[in-house]
Amino acid sequence: MLELYQAPLRSRLLLGTARYPSPAVLTAAVRAARAEVVTVSLRRESGSERAGQGFWSIIRELGVRVLPNTAGCHSVKEAVTTAHMAREVFGTPWIKLEVIGEDDTLQPDVFGLAEAARILCAEEFEVFPYTTEDLVVAERLLSAGCRVLMPWGAPIGSGRGLNNLFGLTALRAHFPDVPLVIDAGLGVPSHAARALELGFDAVLVNSAVAQARDPVRMAAAFAQAVEAGLAARLAGPIEPRDLAVPSTPVIGTAFRG
C-alpha cells in the first residue's frame, strides 16, 4: 500500500477538483476515480456570495483527504503565507507547494520552491513540492525535509503526458525509496498507466478528467489505468529488444529439414 507521510492509501490516483462542469459532476468523478486524496485551493471569498462555503461542504461530504495547494503563488512569501492559511482552514499539515516561475509553462521556480520547502518543513508542514525532474532540485527538496516529490509530467493542463521520459526515469532510479507522484500534464489514461509502469507511485490528474467530454467516465478510465500500470510494474515487464524473438516454439516446426 502506498504511504504518503504515513497516510496509507489504496488508490494511486489523486484527483484535482477544479474546472468540472458542475459540483455534481465533480462529486461523481471523485467517486468514479475511487480517489482518496483530492487537491483543493484557497481563493478570495465574497461576503455576499460565499461560494467557497458550498464547495467546502461538498468536499467534506465526500470524506476524502484534502491536499491544499499554493497555486498561483509566484514568490516564497506568497507560498508560505498561503500554506499557513491553508493549514488553518483545511486542518491538515499537508501542502502541495507550488511556486510558479514562468507564466507560459507554469514551470516551477525551483529556487523559490526549495526555499519555501525549507521554511515549511521546519514548521512541521508535510510538503508535496510541485517540481521538475531535475535531480539536483530533488536532492535539495529532500534535504529541506520533503518526504514526497511531485515531478511534472508536462506543463499543467497541457495533456502532453510524460514529456521527458529519460529525465523522469532517471529521477525514479535515483530515488528508489522516495514516493514520487507525477503531477500535471497527463492527458489520457495511457499516460497514467505509463507512469505507474515506470515505477512512479501515483499520479495527480485534474484537467484531463474535468475537461473531458464525460468527466465521470474519464475518471473511471484513469482509475483502471493506474491499477493496470501498477499491476504491470509488479508483474515485471520484459525488456524491450531491437530484434524479433519468436513467441511460438521453433522446435518441431513443419517443412524444415
Binding site: 477538483t17 477544479a18 471569498e45 467546502w56 488553518e88 482552514v89
Partner: peptide, 27 residues
C-alpha cells in the same frame, strides 16, 4: 497570516490590505 484565534485582538488601520480566503476548487 492572521490566525482565527487572534482576529479579535487584531487592530486594523487606514489603508490596510486584508485578504479573506475560503476553500475553492484546485488542481
Amino acid at each position: 497570516f492572521v490566525a482565527a484565534a487572534v482576529r479579535r485582538g487584531t487592530r486594523l488601520t487606514e489603508g490596510d490590505r486584508v485578504e479573506v480566503l475560503a476553500p475553492m476548487q484546485g488542481g
